[in-house]
Design a protein around this nucleic acid. Sequence first.
DNA 1: GGTCATTTTGCAAGCGCGTGCAAATGCCGC
DNA 2: GCGGCATTTGCACGCGCTTGCAAAATGACC
Lengths: 337, 337
Amino acid sequence: MSQKVFVSAQEVADRAGVSRSAVSRTFTPGASVSPETRRKVVEAADALGYHVNHLARGLMRNESGIVCLIVSDMATPHRSGLIKALTQELQHSGKIAMLVNTDLLDGSVDLALRQAIRYRADASIILSGMPDKSITQLCLKNGQRLVLINRDDEQNGPLRINFDDEEAAGRVVTAFLRAGRRRLAFANSQAGTPSLMARENGFVAAARTHGLEVVVERYGWTSYESGRILAQRLLTLPERPDSVFCATDLLACGFIDAARHQFFIRVPDQLCVAGFDDIEQASWASYQLTTFAQPLAAIAREAVAWLEGSDAAKPEGRAHAIRLHADLVWRGSIRGG
Amino acid sequence: MSQKVFVSAQEVADRAGVSRSAVSRTFTPGASVSPETRRKVVEAADALGYHVNHLARGLMRNESGIVCLIVSDMATPHRSGLIKALTQELQHSGKIAMLVNTDLLDGSVDLALRQAIRYRADASIILSGMPDKSITQLCLKNGQRLVLINRDDEQNGPLRINFDDEEAAGRVVTAFLRAGRRRLAFANSQAGTPSLMARENGFVAAARTHGLEVVVERYGWTSYESGRILAQRLLTLPERPDSVFCATDLLACGFIDAARHQFFIRVPDQLCVAGFDDIEQASWASYQLTTFAQPLAAIAREAVAWLEGSDAAKPEGRAHAIRLHADLVWRGSIRGG
DNA sequence: GGTCATTTTGCAAGCGCGTGCAAATGCCGC
DNA sequence: GCGGCATTTGCACGCGCTTGCAAAATGACC
């Protein structure tokens, strides 16, 4: 038994004694149904356990309500925070998130975007490596909207959301100088994504305007472990840095731990540290990391608003870029807030 | 222009000079197509940028390939780790994850399950509050498979995956005793989910067999901040505990930080701490937390395997429970490994 | 009651696809 | 060349839904 699993609109119609159109209209906001008919339909639907089939609806409307989240390293605090904000915002506006993990696939992002196309996702939000240009073109040609978060690029068409990374980096330099530091260092991963590089370049440039040269070190990907390695490299230098800006909070946590437990260096007395992202751990008592808060909720809001807006609807819609401000969060890892 | 966005099988058929069935069969594994026809179809499909419409396919096959992940607190290290493992495993077997965030909705899980039904998800995996019994019944009646992870319950029908929490708790008692501790405490959240309570009860019971009474404190939900509060309560007791088992690593991190930075208590010399989950932060140098590793990959594998298996297919299939073993990970937060 | 404007309703077509069935094709041995 | 068989192909129907259109119902007004 139980082969005929889902109940269809037809069955509801039969039970309510109306036409199938009537039940369809009942569940379509803004359609014309008399209160009486609606009542009968709702009643029958409840009794039968009817749920509109969004697959079929999407087929007709040519609009699935699905938004594809394409992300790597999703277990990372910052990424998971962003995913949370996005899913919340999407659900809030009646859409649903489809999650694609690009960690172990080969042509990862491209493959993922293909998946998005197959399910006729209305849009894709990418928090992962850069997709191939040909693929983004394919998406756009297929009427998909595209949002790139924190992966600035000259791509045309999609919405790009970024931060004022350079400006933030400049503020770190100021803070370090004010704390009396002169031997600045920058700890980066080798990922080389645009936003990471922007922080690095901004930091180096700002230091230079004060006549200071920054020691830059890059290693691995953006992780706690990389932070430790970077600390081992930078803190064994003949001219040991007295302040370091880590491209990411995760790097900063690893850096601080290595500095403290391995080199017995006191933060912030002997070493000032700044990070970026304001992940939860940055506020933990062991780190007290001064960092920049990415307004995740704002990112999510901007992204979803754009998806709903008419701008995105234009097939050849102007590429749109949003630059958000990252707030400096003062904590104990820099002397003299 | 660009109104006719997606290319259909018909267009591919026309271009390839074959029937629409042929192109459908080309993209259906195991269907009968001659190599020659297949070649022509693939060629035309590539040229046109054709992608099978999974919405329509799901409609026909009555099987969408969508699995719904219903989760709260998804930004938490443990949850995000689980999500990552699940998405990976799902994609590996050709399915796709739909992510539902139940953080701010009211009838959260129920609403989410309705969403899952609407999109005709083949299954739902729940890592969130307990769904109403009526809703799970609805899911099952609609042919959905259900997996509950870490929320043991007497529900019938779905697959339940849990850990040997009691046994693990017993091992912590042994470890504490071996480290010479006698004043044991248990720090829990007020969430009261079955697995948390199992840890608590197992711990208390095991201690009792050694003639020891455990001080139990519960506060808030399972977070770093709650861990701090719990520390403030437990460490100001007249008979200060010398060892504490925290129901969760997140609690343990907060506990350790408060003990160390607020009460200047040395871990593990003056206080032994154990946690559960083995989140990434547990291995960080500041915590060195002895804890239990939940084999996330194994959980994911079991869940997905069950979804694919024939067991799940039986409409009135026997409720199935899997109890996995959590490995003890020895680190520095308990003296004398 | 009759006319007309306004809502409500049902019909039927069609979204893109899978698949059973029968016709067509190819291949083999005689 | 022909019958028998296996494979491939096309036709046509249906999955569950939305929606334009025209018919039916309702109501307002004279």
